[in-house]
Computed example of a mutant assay.
Amino acid sequence: MQEYWELYMKNLEGKPSSIQFNAGISMDIDELQYSHPIVAFVKVKLKEPSEHGLIGEQEEPEILFMEDKLEASLIKFRIGKYVGRVISDGYVTFLFYVQFTYNWQDFLEFALEEFESYEISNGYQEDREWNYYKKLLYPTPKEWQLIQNHKVCDVLKAKEDNLHLARAIEHKLFFSNGDEKKDELVSKLDVKGFKIQSEIENEEGVKGLKFYRIDKPFYHDIDELTLYLIDLLEEYGASYDGWETSVVKS
């Protein structure tokens, strides 16, 4: 089973929230829904949250240590999978999917014996459809795009790119249900200042377009641009497929 983790921000009930989840587990979700039908949680009240209700720098090492202990305990008692955590409104909630619950209390005692100074609650319930994973932890297409945006920005920044400098940013799209509206879309992109580079086709034979415009790839700017393009392309039966650009140093 492949395991890799992603971290992103979202809004939950009007509160900024940090979501970390095991993205690799999604590849085996059909099997896991059958074998691990119970969602369980450990909810911890932060002692010193940041002004936005997230983890403060002073407290982060202890919460990460608690997370490690929970994972170690999960392995020791062989009851399930750790799938992610939510940090929001002054709380950290660790989420698991388990096979059974008869030794749930043993799991908790072993994991949390060193954290008596924290206010901690816990519980579990049946969730055969894995709705907590799919609808709370797993990102929407737009949230996935923001994750990818920030990864590209981080790579550019590591190469000493000045993200505030405008340059040609290349984008790709593919038509979801045929390209009947291609001419209309090309006209719309032209009005918005985009230039078509070429027609493209993916490995499955789906047709698309490569296009570009002069923009800044700074985090907030590229987020606003790509979210706009996702909505725009959807109107014309197309899906957005990411961006790339060259490194531009100061």
Rank of each mutant, 00 (worst) to 15 (best):
1 M>R: 08
3 E>R: 09
8 Y>Q: 08
8 Y>I: 09
10 K>E: 15
10 K>L: 10
10 K>D: 14
13 E>R: 15
13 E>F: 15
13 E>L: 15
14 G>F: 15
14 G>D: 15
15 K>D: 15
16 P>Y: 14
18 S>E: 15
21 F>R: 00
22 N>E: 13
23 A>S: 07
24 G>R: 06
28 D>P: 02
30 D>A: 06
31 E>S: 08
33 Q>T: 05
35 S>P: 06
36 H>S: 02
40 A>T: 00
45 K>Q: 08
45 K>V: 05
48 E>M: 01
51 E>C: 05
52 H>V: 10
53 G>F: 08
54 L>Q: 11
54 L>C: 03
55 I>M: 06
58 Q>H: 03
58 Q>I: 09
61 P>K: 01
63 I>S: 03
63 I>Y: 01
64 L>Q: 10
65 F>H: 09
66 M>E: 04
66 M>W: 07
67 E>D: 11
67 E>H: 05
75 I>L: 06
76 K>G: 06
77 F>E: 09
78 R>D: 12
79 I>N: 02
80 G>N: 02
83 V>T: 12
84 G>M: 02
85 R>I: 03
85 R>Y: 13
86 V>G: 00
90 G>T: 13
99 Q>F: 10
102 Y>W: 14
104 W>I: 08
104 W>S: 04
107 F>A: 07
111 A>F: 13
112 L>W: 14
118 Y>A: 01
120 I>A: 01
126 E>N: 08
128 R>S: 12
130 W>H: 07
130 W>K: 00
130 W>C: 02
131 N>T: 07
133 Y>V: 01
134 K>F: 06
135 K>A: 09
137 L>H: 03
137 L>N: 00
137 L>P: 00
137 L>E: 03
138 Y>F: 07
139 P>M: 01
139 P>Q: 07
140 T>A: 03
140 T>G: 06
142 K>Q: 15
142 K>A: 15
144 W>C: 05
145 Q>R: 14
146 L>D: 14
147 I>K: 13
149 N>K: 10
154 D>G: 11
159 K>Y: 15
161 D>A: 06
162 N>S: 09
163 L>H: 05
166 A>E: 14
171 H>N: 12
172 K>W: 10
173 L>C: 04
180 E>W: 05
190 D>F: 04
192 K>I: 08
199 E>I: 00
199 E>N: 01
203 E>F: 07
208 G>D: 08
211 F>G: 05
211 F>T: 07
212 Y>I: 06
212 Y>L: 09
213 R>T: 10
216 K>P: 07
216 K>G: 04
219 Y>M: 04
220 H>M: 11
221 D>K: 13
221 D>Q: 10
221 D>H: 10
225 L>Q: 12
225 L>E: 15
228 Y>A: 11
230 I>R: 13
234 E>H: 13
236 Y>M: 11
240 Y>N: 02
241 D>N: 12
242 G>H: 09
243 W>I: 05
244 E>A: 11
249 K>G: 05
